[in-house]
């Protein structure tokens, strides 16, 4: 029993980065109908920028906010230059998806060329460790978990109750109708990409401190974040965060009780079973339409 509790606690801590990434993915998807595969690399790029700033003497807390700003601006630029010119439509979802995959690969190559491919040590935002139910957890992971939970609460409130958040959902559903009402769909898209990519920067900032920073660090977390998104529901922001945490816990349990070699297999088998029973994920909703 003690094992399970400690595995869950450390799994939640591990899953915080997946949860933040998943939330970023869902914000962008729900606001602009685009699945952004470059979101992890955007966060990595911003974390490299923060590393250069730290090396130049910028305090780590300031570098943290710099990373968020850099990722946000890169996100806005990507949306304006690569996604917005495509227009809107169901068939463009796949075009945009391929474009963001390509953008991510270009970013990785660019980061490798500029900062090199060898892993670089990265300082934690909050150094130190604490014992939770007998498990030693880094304060860095605790901070990431707290950020993920605060972000989830804020985003759920913002999109559920604030007019601008509701306008973001409306804009994703029908941008022309949104413009007819006087809503500025271009500004809505920019804010969504800023928020989504900013959250990715937070995730990568915490992940880099847990291991080290390299241009390909986002691969595995992005894979798990997408799993979390589908597990929680592509349309649900709280679902994405819960899905991200659930992936962290599943990952831990599979690694401990079965084999570390079969972690991915076990995690994704469970997801397939869940999606078979609930195709929209735990908290996602199937589109309801009167016929």
């Amino acid at each position: 029993m003690g094992d399970i509790i400690s595995l869950i606690i450390s799994g939640i801590a591990n899953g915080s980065a997946y949860a933040l990434l998943a939330l970023g993915i869902v914000i962008i998807f729900r606001s602009t109908d685009t699945v952004n595969f470059a979101i992890g690399d955007t966060g990595t790029l911003a974390t490299f920028a923060a590393l250069s700033a730290i090396a130049a003497g910028v305090p780590i807390a300031a570098a943290f906010f710099l990373a968020i700003a850099v990722a946000g601006v890169v996100g806005i630029a990507a949306e304006r230059l690569l996604i917005r010119p495509l227009g809107h439509g169901q068939h463009l979802l796949f075009v945009a998806l391929v474009i963001t995959i390509g953008l991510g690969l270009v970013m990785q190559a660019g980061m490798g060329a500029f900062w090199g491919n060898t892993p670089k040590p990265f300082p934690p935002l909050v150094p130190g460790w604490i014992q939770v139910a007998g498990v030693a957890i880094s304060l860095n992971k605790i901070a990431a978990t707290v950020f993920a939970l605060i972000a989830m609460g804020f985003v759920a409130w913002f999109f559920g109750y604030m007019p601008f958040g509701i306008a973001m959902r409306a804009s994703a559903e029908d941008p022309l109708a949104a413009r007819m009402l006087g809503l500025n769909t271009g500004r809505i898209a920019s804010i969504a990409w800023f928020l989504g990519c900013g959250l990715a920067a937070i995730a990568m900032f915490f992940l880099a401190a847990e291991s080290s920073l390299n241009p390909h660090i986002a691969h595995s977390p992005l894979f798990r974040a997408f799993a979390g998104v589908f597990l929680g529901g592509l349309t649900s922001m709280p679902g994405a965060v819960i899905g991200g945490f659930a992936i962290g816990v599943l990952d831990n349990i599979a690694g401990h009780y079965i084999s570390a070699n079969y972690r991915d297999t076990i995690v994704f088998t469970v997801i397939v079973v869940v999606l078979f029973v609930r195709p929209a994920g735990f908290l996602g909703s199937i589109r309801k339409e009167r016929v």
Binding site: F164, R169, L176, G182
Partner: peptide, 30 residues
């Protein structure tokens, strides 16, 4: 969009996944 002019378009173009209240709210917010 022209200030003071509202259009109810052909086919209504409501936000189907948004609630009645949210659709109305956006009319004022926009």
């Amino acid at each position: 969009p022209i200030a003071g002019v509202s259009l109810v378009p052909e086919g209504r173009r409501l936000f189907g996944q948004l609630s009645v209240r949210e659709n109305l709210l956006l009319g004022g917010f926009g």
